[in-house]
Nucleic acid binder design. Sequence first.
DNA 1: TTTTCGTTTGGCAGCGCTGCCATTCTCGTG
DNA 2: CACGAGAATGGCAGCGCTGCCAAACGAAAA
Lengths: 338, 338
Amino acid sequence: MQSEAEDGTQTGAMITLTDVARAAGVGESTASRVLRGHGSFSTKTRESVLTAARSLGYVPNRIAGTLASMGSKLVGVVIPSLSNIVFPDVLRGANTVLVGAGFQPVVAVTDYDPEREESVIESLLSWRPAGMMVAGLEHTERTGAMLRNARIRVAELLDTDGEGIDIVVGFSNRKAGRVSAQHLMSRGYRCIGYVGHDLSLDLRAAKRFAAFRAALGEAGLSIIGEEIIRAASSIEAGRDGLARLLERCPDLDAVYFSNDDMAIGGYFHCLAHGITIPDRLAIFGYNGLDVARSAPQPLSTILTPRVTVGEIGARLVCSDGPSAVVDIGFELIEGATT
Amino acid sequence: MQSEAEDGTQTGAMITLTDVARAAGVGESTASRVLRGHGSFSTKTRESVLTAARSLGYVPNRIAGTLASMGSKLVGVVIPSLSNIVFPDVLRGANTVLVGAGFQPVVAVTDYDPEREESVIESLLSWRPAGMMVAGLEHTERTGAMLRNARIRVAELLDTDGEGIDIVVGFSNRKAGRVSAQHLMSRGYRCIGYVGHDLSLDLRAAKRFAAFRAALGEAGLSIIGEEIIRAASSIEAGRDGLARLLERCPDLDAVYFSNDDMAIGGYFHCLAHGITIPDRLAIFGYNGLDVARSAPQPLSTILTPRVTVGEIGARLVCSDGPSAVVDIGFELIEGATT
DNA sequence: TTTTCGTTTGGCAGCGCTGCCATTCTCGTG
DNA sequence: CACGAGAATGGCAGCGCTGCCAAACGAAAA
């Protein structure tokens, strides 16, 4: 006198597969087979099980199913931040593919902190996910060990400059930095500055900046002024950063920003202060955000295929192919700000 | 000769609690108690279990733990989209609180489709989450039934105009629409237009617009022209929408946009075409995005406390208080565009 | 020393489901 | 009409862990 139910509404306890089987007058395994569409069963059986399940309001318990079959349909997705649209974009690409393949993403946010990454990955692994998608290639030693020992697919995203664990999908941030520098130089800019956010945490931005600086160096140039905001990137930080940099270095003719958020901030500063772009000052960003592409003067920037990275990463995580490094490149957008 | 291991690296099978217990020379339940810090055990036992766990590289299996204890630490988060920063903002607030309380968010995206919402919620419920956070109050009948029968905390977010299931955290979109209209009228605008995105899906935007229109009506005014883009909101859609609307209604003196993305698009259109803001045309949005607040002329808009909605929703979902409706209001920002 | 009571511990039965295997039921064949 | 071969089905042992209970232990009290 407990878990029986007659209609869609709840009764005593949770409805289990056993309840459904009993109501349908079949064995548990038969009910299980029908509900999963696995194995063989007669049409008549099928109907009665489905009817029973529906009328009891049965919701399968995947916790139990996963434990029994030892294969979960969860995929961990580890990203540094939710504040910047970049990572939701990756997540969106991943989500589409994962859901299509019957998986559920479980997201965790690291706030760009390697220790936090370690702890969220540990916690994620305890759900025995079928795979794991992580932004970046740099992890603590223990994180690497956990990921390697987990015997699951691991995809590292958004960067190809370094050693991966299993699958790597992204593009070279170094190359992006270099290409950006070359673009500015080819346009004739010589007094180049940099406005960036806290690079000690955002390793990919740091790689871009290092390569950017190196490329200038190879051409006999150097950055004549840089302004680093000790905070996460934001439009406001870009605005303030450029304002301060221009005060210190009035001779600048171009500024490389750590990303589009910062660059849009710089762009807004110029608009607000009547600084003509690109004649008086050129601006270059990174990411190719919508806002940058739809601005009155489309921002010159590097378009990163973030959604695609998520999609391909997810596809490979769901596959059983060999380890691989997929460099899907990026696109330099020659906007109106350089 | 299988699941034994000597160091941190992997061996035959996955390390289980039994392995740890055996290696530590204690019973399973003792090991379990130590690892969870539940119940009592001697310091000596504690040390040996912890040591064994560490040296074997033990990763607890929460699937099994959850099944046994019948209480999961998962919370489902259902949002319509990942393309607009609004929902990642909510997710961010929720994530912070959930993680702090020992929960894992499992996100699902509905693409603003009620049918899809139904199916993702069904799928989420099969993980027997401890709670559920869903954007909006409108669901299919079956979705409502599932949520009600799940015997878990359910928080509906971002809207208070309607009947909730359990916990409701948000603000009134109707009031937001009305207040927006009142603001524009109080500033003296009389020829007011509307540029919006596909409202058949975004019910909250539809509520705002309906209330906006009603408020105008009460004052004896009406919308003299509207342009609805049959697509998701975006900066570009706002740009194009305003361009088209101005062509049809050159007399407009103010435009209400369905949200800030659209409004920023409109703002960019004006910048690009030398339309003076707010003298020639006023612009009003909704959401209070960073980009809108940092623009050369800060956008007049409604600031919605999205992160806070996520935080409070999560806090209540983790609590065991009574059902509640929490209206945390919004803030009208008198920017420079009205 | 013995009794008592609280602390520490191990055994074991499930949690709800799946996978395996044995069994029964159907037909088409010889 | 008996005889496989395959389809359809049910029984049951786990998956790895937790919760409950009883047992063992120890230290303080009598």
